[in-house]
Computed example of a mutant assay.
Amino acid sequence: MHLFLTSSNLTLNGQYINEENGFRSLLFDVLPHHIRCLYIASDPIDTIHNDEWGNYQKKALMNSHFLVDIFTILDDRNKEKTEELVKESDLIILGGGHVPTQNKFFREIHLKKYLKEYEGVIVGVSAGSMNCAKTVYAMPELPGEYLDKKYQRYLPGLELTQTMIIPHYNEIHDDCLDGVHIFKDIAYPDSAKRTFIVLVDGSFIHIHEGKEVIYGLSYKIEKGKQSLIQEKDCMFTLDS
């Protein structure tokens, strides 16, 4: 299996697969010439947006010269076919969205079980990347989640990696939620006993045969502090 954890796999205009840090070339190299693609939505009941976002992914692949023979969107409409659709796919895209909502859907369709024997390529996008971890860090993102004492920040994930990521740093690094700063007041304290890898759009992690390599600008939050891992156009191998 080749696993890519991305903050965003598309260009800013959504028209193409992102070429920053060599992502498009590396993805092209590990896929077959003709692709059967499965896009797994984050919110199974939001079928209108699922079709819209799925079509963005399909068009971006085709615009970037990937030959897409089959493109299927997996949500509530066909979730009973999850095992079959996974087995028939060369490329699985785990869509972005609300982390806990997607996490619940993944568990409902037993995706973790069906991915154990999967030997194709998986691309996680934002929430999809976050839910690939063994323990998922669901940092509060919607109004009220930080204040909700029942909100669960740690969820069981797909167990495809131990790495917990926070995406879209370029967009959210100054954001506040429920009156607090999402990094200084939420992520930093939560890192007392955990390590988070922070990615900007265009950076990604490639995981294959137990080796995890970060491509592009990235940071680490650990023990309440944030530090630079590397600049853009660089590679860094994470400790196993």
Rank of each mutant, 00 (worst) to 15 (best):
D174G: 05
T161D: 10
L91T: 01
E88S: 03
R107K: 14
P140R: 15
L31C: 07
D190S: 03
I221A: 02
A41V: 15
L31F: 06
E19K: 06
H34Q: 06
S218K: 00
D233M: 12
H208C: 10
E222S: 04
L199D: 01
G96P: 08
N78V: 02
D190A: 06
T82M: 09
H33Q: 06
Q152F: 15
P100A: 00
D190N: 04
I182N: 00
G124I: 12
K220T: 10
T163D: 12
H206Y: 08
M1P: 11
R107F: 15
I166H: 03
L26S: 01
Y137S: 13
T6W: 02
H168E: 05
K193E: 05
T47W: 08
Y56S: 06
T195Q: 10
G96V: 11
I93T: 01
E222R: 14
I207D: 01
Y114M: 14
P32Y: 08
E119Y: 14
E119K: 15
L147H: 12
E145P: 12
P140Y: 15
T163E: 11
F23Q: 03
Y16E: 02
L142E: 05
F183D: 00
D174K: 14
I205S: 03
L31N: 03
H49Y: 15
L74N: 03
G157R: 05
L228G: 05
G14H: 06
E83H: 07
Y137G: 13
I35K: 02
E108Q: 12
L85D: 11
S7F: 08
D51P: 08
N170V: 13
L26K: 04
I73R: 00
G128F: 11
K193P: 00
S126W: 09
L91V: 04
S7M: 08
S218N: 03
R36P: 00
I40L: 01
V200C: 07
I93W: 01
S8W: 11
D175Q: 09
I40C: 02
I221R: 02
Q57A: 10
T163Q: 09
N50M: 07
Q102I: 08
T195D: 00
S25Q: 09
K104N: 14
D76W: 04
Y146D: 11
T195S: 05
